[in-house]
Design a protein around this nucleic acid. Structure first.
Lengths: 209, 209, 209, 209
DNA sequence: GGATAATCGAGACGGTACGTCAGGTCTTAGA
DNA sequence: TCTAAGACCTGACGTACCGTCTCGATTATCC
């Protein structure tokens, strides 16, 4: 997001000190005043940086926060390899849920998801630098399971990922329930249990059972 | 949201004409300039109302939009009673997906969900007047299925609802995939298939089948 | 400058309190920090008004100051009628010089003249609402003298006015000399001395002497 | 203003190329965007110089412009010696007026005079390096006339100079009238015509004539 | 019917933050 | 050690909306 492709340039170098102060101020402030109360002006004041320095490197307060989150909290989830789909999935969910249990991080993520709905350009950046990255991680687990033949025919891998991330985000955004151990069990069971392919037995056929 | 509990009062009556003009202006404007560009000032100007008239009846632009949506689009989903869990679920999903397919409505809902993340007070109103209402509708279907013994042991009814709404919202908020017929099939299959109790049969044991 | 030709308008009335507070703040601040240090932001802060309120009624800080000066200091010089050109001119100069002797007013006028050189639109307003007004006053005196036959043929009335205002402004802008009683005498003498009728001795004819 | 007192110094020599590029850019820009739109940043960009290079050698944009003007336009007026006060004065005025007739130069001079009102330090530099220099030129002419006995008793030489420069500057700053041949005639007549010393005939005594 | 009361459109008010611009300083790499 | 480049902090700009507060005009209810 803030890379300099050609590192050999004249002129003063970007101040790493300023960069870190800005990110730290953003994290602090969002905790104190909430995302709505977070302003570029406030971040500049708290960090001791000039507003222009922020505008030079980040296009919006959401980008600052996303960068801060990526720098501070470890947003990337390692791809587990436990030997079986069930175990991999369980490990992935455990790691993902741990992230969401930190209220600070959860609040910030909710805010970023919210901002992504409103700011079209940020939506792309948020997707590719956060959402898609985590989707890819789960995708690798699912691919591995498919080659091993551990994957039930329904739901399809894509839908399975949507179900997993869907339920996590829905709980964060729409309810106050935290994601807990129980949910992991239910998700693992729901997504690993073998079931017939769609269409082989129509809903109508199964109605009587 | 905008009810007057004691209708016998002196003074001029609330102008229904203004109310409708405001809601119409809100819908129009959000389509033209997006939610971020939607302002109370703009709604007032477009509708020919005074700003105070809006502030008198709605606490925020999100509330105006929610009201407008409830008035224009039919946000409430009828609770189907087709005789079986499978059929009821399918009917519910079909009705729900139809709503989300209207881009205008979907955009507005995304914006409201976003606003709910940022405005604490609106969050409560949005949950109780929209999210909870639809959750309750699905809850009735699930309850009925449970008493009929049609419900698989996993996931629990609460989690099942989270899965359903989770995947719908996740697709709206995080991906560009529309919700389609295919997803209905997968959801119905995933949530209706009878399965053994958790843990009795491991995925590994069933690998060969 | 800020008149409302149609006094019957809907909406809240302009706040006279704010207007006066703004003008007072402008006068105070220009005395404290000088014209270069005077800012709209500062005037707003000092007066307790919002910036928008200032921008609503005055197009620039120079206009605020001009208005303040016109309201506070009495910028208009009464047109004397002492019975003779000499006496009128002396009275006019005395009144004009008194204005320039107040350092506060003189500084502000210098600044406004300076601003007029840089801001094309303000130049017009400054000329018509200050410079031209005072030129007209002197013009009346000169006209009266001409009808009485008291006016020397050279310089012409227009040039006479330019000489009077020119020397005053030049001393204010380019030198540190104050305008004093002595200058009045010299100006009166230079502009009133009776000389032969026009044409009897042309400038060309006198060239050789 | 931009002198290098010790030409033998270690390090890279001052780039004459840069200096000329900066002055040229200043002249160009002030013509294109006006004095208000003229910025150090803009001059640096146009000239291909760094901002620091400008700040190193000139204290303000006005100084750059003054330097540019002195380098480009010939601001100094030669002191004529035509043998008589009348002829000298006429020659001086003709030369001075020629300068003000070049719109480019006139605009720049107006802007510098304006800047001098606002920037205290520049005021001193502008006076001594421009205003005083021209005043001295006229002073020599007047002195010569006095020793020759050609000078009328009123106005005094100092006031005469103020009248001359006052009317020129007043026309440039306050009116749109150009300085023309006619004004030369009037000024020469007004300042050469012999008249009694101030006080020998009081205004009251002359009232009846 | 006249007082009282709530509404309406309009628009000015004190504010906050925006995103931009330029100022003047400082740091880098290269000549 | 000077140069061009460019990042830095500072501070003001002019704008957009916010939510509140008069205004005068318009309905309504109640006495």
């Amino acid at each position: 997001m803030t890379d300099h492709p050609i590192p050999v340039r004249p002129g003063r170098k970007r101040s790493e000190e300023s960069r870190l102060a800005i990110l730290a101020a953003a994290i602090e402030l969002v905790g104190e005043v909430g995302y709505a109360g977070l302003t570029i002006e406030g971040i500049a004041a708290r960090s001791g940086a000039g507003k222009q320095t922020i505008y030079r490197w980040w296009p919006s307060k959401a980008d600052v926060l996303l960068d801060a989150l990526a720098t501070k909290a470890d947003l990337h989830v390692p791809i587990p390899d436990e030997g079986s789909y069930t175990a991999d999935l369980r490990a992935f969910l455990t790691a993902s849920f741990r992230l969401g249990r930190d209220q600070r991080v959860a609040d910030a993520l909710r805010a970023l998801m919210a901002h992504a709905q409103i700011d079209e350009e940020f939506r792309g950046r948020f997707r590719s630098s956060f959402l898609q990255r985590r989707r890819d991680a789960l995708g690798i687990i699912l691919d591995r399971a498919r080659t091993r033949g551990e994957l039930p025919p329904v739901p399809s891998p894509g839908t399975a990922a949507d179900l997993v991330f869907g339920v996590i985000w829905y709980r964060m955004l729409a309810t106050s329930q935290p994601v807990d151990e129980n949910l992991i069990d239910e998700l693992v069971t729901t997504l690993t249990e073998p079931r017939p392919a769609v269409g082989t037995s129509t809903p109508a056929a199964r109605k009587g059972t």
